[in-house]
């Protein structure tokens, strides 16, 4: 038996393709309208405000405002907090996802349900609850007082903000990893062990690389909301830590400075876009290899 390593390329049936396209256009119309009204138009507003002053004249002042040390510090702090929170999420989520993926399917659904249950409550309420727990007169301080200790100042500590982000966004990291891990044939690990790999090495060389797509989408899904969050940091720091999301919020809501708010949003969006592209680059390499 000989086979040709070069597989023949099939011609795409153009006529059918066009017909299908036309049909799907009809089905997609409501979505397209929705996207235009609620995504494209607002983005154009952001773009407009970014490059105009209060009188509507073109200016780059708003972008120059971003160069001030205070705003740069907020951007930097946001990125650092988001990176740390994402890393903590990954470290917590992976073993959890691994454990869930090894459960029988009915237990797996239960575990997934338990994991998703907190998501039924708005993250604002969850963050507020967290604040109450760690407040100066919150439950933890009450317990400490009962044990005879003095009041501990939790609010404002960096780790509490990280905790808030991890608490709010952990399921977004766990779920894609569970999905990917569940899809990995357990026989592959057996095959690796059969070929001389200890279970740990089999994990490193088979399970881990095969779950890369899940890790990447988990990182993206946690990093993006973390870097732009505005409520967690201000609530859990008692107002002492200001991230870029908080700045944007106050620019719009407190100062009615749509121009500076838009400029910060615009740059943040570009930063997020770049980080997603970078992440997808990792993912793409894999899928390209698979398709090659």
């Amino acid at each position: 038996m000989t086979s040709n390593p070069v597989s023949p390329v099939k011609k795409s049936p153009i006529r059918h393709f066009r017909l299908a396209n036309l049909r799907s256009l009809g089905i997609l119309t409501p979505h397209i309208v929705w996207c235009v009204i609620f995504i494209v138009v607002p983005l154009l507003f952001v773009l407009y405000y970014t490059f105009t002053d209060r009188n509507g004249a073109f200016t780059t002042d708003n972008l120059q405002f971003l160069g001030t040390p205070e705003i740069l510090r907020c951007f930097g702090l946001s990125i650092v907090y988001a990176l740390v929170a994402t890393a903590v999420c990954l470290l917590l989520a992976y073993p959890l996802a691994l454990a869930i993926s090894k459960l029988k399917s009915n237990h797996q659904s239960l575990a997934t349900l338990l994991l998703m249950l907190p998501m039924w409550v708005s993250f604002i309420i969850r963050t507020y609850t967290l604040k109450n727990i760690f407040n100066d007169n919150g439950i933890i301080n009450q317990i400490i007082a009962m044990l005879g200790g003095g009041e501990v100042k939790f609010l404002g500590q960096s780790w509490l903000i990280i905790l808030g982000m991890v608490y709010d966004f952990l399921p977004y990291m766990v779920m894609p990893i569970v999905t990917v891990l569940t899809g990995i044939d357990p026989k592959l690990n057996e095959a690796a062990e059969d070929l001389g790999y200890s279970p740990f090495r089999a994990f490193l060389h088979v399970t881990l690389p095969l779950s890369r797509a899940g890790i990447i989408s988990g990182i993206t899904m946690v990093f993006v909301p973390c870097v732009s969050t505005f409520y967690i940091s201000s609530t859990l720091s008692g107002g002492t830590v200001t991230l870029i999301g908080d700045k944007i919020e106050s620019a719009f809501l407190s100062n009615s400075n749509f121009q500076q708010g838009s400029a910060m949003s615009f740059v943040l969006m570009i930063l997020i876009l770049i980080s997603i592209l970078v992440m997808n680059k990792f993912g793409d390499k894999e899928s390209e290899e698979l398709l090659a």
Binding site: D185, K187, L188, D194, L210
Partner: peptide, 22 residues
């Protein structure tokens, strides 16, 4: 003796080839 210390190798039923490797 665990599988990885046995001088035995297996051709699995549905091959169990590593999809991330060529």
């Amino acid at each position: 003796i665990p599988p990885y210390h046995r001088n035995v190798n297996t051709v699995f039923q549905k091959y169990a080839l590593f999809p991330h490797l060529n």
